[in-house]
Amino acid sequence: MQNLFYILSGLTIFAAIMVIISKHPIRSILFLVFTFFLISAHYVLLNAQFLALVNVVVYAGAIMVLFLFVVMFLNLNQDIERFKSWIPLSAAAISGACLFLVFFSAFRTSVLASHENTGGYQQGLVENLGEVLYRDYLFPMEICSILFLVAMIGVVLLGRKERVEPIKNLVP
């Protein structure tokens, strides 16, 4: 069973790296979908079955379809990346790597206080989650619905066609 985790982890990292190194946007998106599936698998291993499902539905299903749709819509399937200079790229890579090292070294030695108190597989089921959600997090959930409403209005406004003022006839 232990190996399952490591295999999954390797695949996840490989897929994520492929997302950022593949030149073709469509390929990136497909690798990203793959990454999300792998993360869902991790959720199953962590007894978060409901979240695994939601992850597949929301991320792999809805969000990635949106991405795909935009790429198709803008006709971006050809590569537009052009290297201008190595300096910003290397600076980006170096700073990212440095930050990674710092976090890595910080987490490597971290210890969780209580290791024993695992909740069992029922914990991630929708029954349990729903109880917690509607008992403790009712208000944030309602706020979430307002957030969606705002996002929806915003998207509609952004996507609206600019109204062009009709040019007035100069000759009376």
């Binding site: 910003p88 600076a91 980006a92 700073s95 990212g96 930050l99 976090f103």
Partner: peptide
Amino acid sequence: LSTAVSILLIV
């Protein structure tokens, strides 16, 4: 990039 560098520095 500068956001990343500043986070690095803060950390």
